[in-house]
Design a protein around this nucleic acid. Sequence first.
DNA 1: ACCTGAACACCGTTCAAGT
DNA 2: ACCTGAACACCGTTCAAGT
Lengths: 188, 188
Amino acid sequence: MSQSTGGTRERIQAVALELFTEQGYEKTSLREIAERLGVTKAALYYHFKSKEEIVNSYVEDRLHRMDELIDWARDQPATRATRHALVSQYADTMFAPGQSVVMRFFEQNQTVLKSLVAGQQMRERMFRLADAICQGDDSPRAQLRATLVLFAVHSSWFAVRTPDITDDERKKIALEVADELLNGIEES
Amino acid sequence: MSQSTGGTRERIQAVALELFTEQGYEKTSLREIAERLGVTKAALYYHFKSKEEIVNSYVEDRLHRMDELIDWARDQPATRATRHALVSQYADTMFAPGQSVVMRFFEQNQTVLKSLVAGQQMRERMFRLADAICQGDDSPRAQLRATLVLFAVHSSWFAVRTPDITDDERKKIALEVADELLNGIEES
DNA sequence: ACCTGAACACCGTTCAAGT
DNA sequence: ACCTGAACACCGTTCAAGT
């Protein structure tokens, strides 16, 4: 039983992601995940060291894409154009096909993530990205604006409640509002 | 033992708020709370129907203050001045003395709150407030902007990392950035 | 290599019982 | 009215054991 080409690890990731997003991380028990897979709770521990490790497995490639962005930004001049490119790139990785599922998981589980290692790493990257965005203007105003730029990309997923809107349209709107915020940051 | 003028209920609220903020709602056990109070786990159930009910007790007056704001806004013209007053009032209740502890609890526990009744109510009020803010301009762009206005007030607590900044300064910066966003919303 | 069965300490909740 | 003691089903995790 339970078709699909082996890959129990991958099947655990998929089922867990779905349940974590639907019901939240804490409210989803390993028993539930195991039952859906027709497997024992203990079996999960062969593939993952802990419940938290399942979450970490989603975050890894996301983290290193953010690292790449941060590194790239460091070598660029602190201009409007750089900031625009940075945010645009960030939105691209956030709205990449296949990533939208993970996106909704993050939106649903921000707080739990704070206590998990993966969440702290994501949080740290967000601060560094924000710092990269307001490079050359370290006023509190610029810090807040830079943070809201990232939020604009994130929150377009739920804040825009227009029915039948496509992901591309969400992204476009997010970038427009983000750009306005960027214009308030001084060039150095 | 355990001084203070009786009021076990109030002492539970205080200790729980502290622990929930420090360690998060899910990671704080009722045993921990009970031990700090020199009381039994079961005793908590005399004062609160459940763990969730403790959280609800923080949210109640906050909810009705938001309701008042929403009701007030409904009867006002959809002008820049109304929107400014609305956000300014909202920031006042958010930064009210004594509320900053509750504020940090919310910041720390957004996600858990989503699955709790109290959280869903707060979420619903936030959407309604956002709708009130972009009254007269129901474009997706305006919706996103209005949501970010509320986030500006909330996130000034952690996004601004300037050392030794006062709560009043945070509030001032939040309102400045919020006002810029408001200016992008059309008057009807 | 991959999984099971059974046990571990802990969790939120209930309830009869005590004062 | 206010609290205790003991039990309940459930949780994440471990580990010896099976194939």
